[in-house]
Every structure is written in C-alpha cells, then in structure tokens.
C-alpha cells in the first residue's frame, strides 16, 4: 500500500476533528451542565408532583387558562396532593416561584423556548407592585363636566368609518390585509 502512514494519519486527524463537539464539551466540563432552577425556599411541594410539573407545566397552564377564561372556574384541586389552588398565573405560580430569572428563565434559556406569557402577565416585585414612569397625559381632560361632555372617543361613535380610516391611516404598518 502506498502512503499508508499518510492515509492513517489523515484518518486519525479527521476523526479527531470531526468528533470535536463531543470531546470538547466533555473536556470543558460543559457536558454535565444543567440549568438548575432555584426552587422556592420554605415550600415543599408544587401544585402537582415534581415529575408532572417538569414535563407538563405548560399544558397545566393552558388548561388553567381555558378553565378560567372560557369555563369561568377559579379553583384547581391538585390530583397528586388534593390541595386547592386559585388558577392564576401571577397569583399562584409566581407567588411561590417569585424570581422568574432564577427559575422559569433558567430552563427556558437552556431549552431555547421563549414563552410570551410575560408580555401581559405581570411579574411580582419585592414590593408586590410594579411602578412605571408615566408617559401619558398629566390630568384627565374635562370629559367629566356637564357643560362640555366627552370629546374622547367621540370619533368612534360619530362616524365609525371615518374613525376607522383615521386609525388605519395613523398606523399603516399595523394594518392587516388592507
């Protein structure tokens, strides 16, 4: 065989290079990396068993959402423990799991999922309330006096079509299927 040394050497080099992702993660200790979400202190159990929560928490949340919004129910009875919980994202889940960054985010970043729930559902802060800088108007307009009733939203009633057109014109980027 000609150049067997070179071929075998090349093959070895190739194998090592191709396996780079495997041995590198092992060598750098990243293979054992786990997101390690911080569990709430002083609490011993979740709404359901740990295994169930790990694999099904997103489905549980969907179920809660539909039961509350569409069926008009409020209480959930845990199948694992029999405890009663108010079905609420902020008032229940985030009451125990206070720190989103230390808990939900840890796993979600790791798994590369970005639930959009927090676009609307509010995280609790230490004070329990979120403060915001006010950008809107400083005082209510004189919509409340008898002499000069509301002009607010008048356009909406006065001439619906006109108002719609005005709204659409004011923000063309947000128009769907025009």
């Amino acid at each position: 065989m000609y150049d067997s040394g070179k071929i075998i050497g090349g093959l070895v080099l190739f194998t090592v290079a191709a396996a780079f992702p495997v041995w590198y993660t092992h060598a750098s200790g990243k293979a054992g990396y786990q997101p390690n979400p911080v569990l709430p202190e002083g609490k011993t159990k979740c709404v359901e068993s740990k295994e169930y929560m790990l694999s099904e928490h997103m489905n549980l949340l969907d179920e809660w959402r539909d039961l509350v919004v569409r069926e008009g129910q409020t209480t959930y009875v845990s199948t694992a423990y029999g405890d009663e919980y108010e079905m609420s994202f902020t008032k229940t889940c985030l009451d125990c799991h206070e720190k989103k960054e230390e808990f939900c985010d840890k796993c979600h970043t790791y798994a590369d999922v970005t639930p959009y729930c927090w676009d609307c559902h509010v995280e609790k802060t230490a004070t329990g309330r979120m403060q915001h800088v006010r950008v809107g108007r400083q005082s209510k307009p004189d919509m409340l006096s008898n002499a000069e009733p509301s002009r607010r939203g008048a356009a909406r009633l006065e001439d619906k079509d006109k108002a719609m057109t005005a709204r659409i014109d004011s923000e063309p980027s947000a128009v769907i299927g025009r």
């Binding site: 609420s88 994202f89 902020t90 008032k91 676009d119 609307c120 559902h121 509010v122 995280e123 609790k124 802060t125 329990g128 309330r129 979120m130 403060q131 915001h132 800088v133 006010r134 950008v135 809107g136 947000a174």
Partner: peptide, 17 residues
C-alpha cells in the same frame, strides 16, 4: 404598559395587536 400609571400585578396587561 408605558401608559399604565401603576400596574396591578393581579390582572394581566395586554400587548400591541
């Protein structure tokens, strides 16, 4: 959200759209 003076965490806000 920027137009809400004080957000009540108990009720969700809404988003654009």
């Amino acid at each position: 959200r920027p137009f809400i003076q004080e957000i009540r965490p108990e009720y969700p806000t809404r988003t654009k759209g």
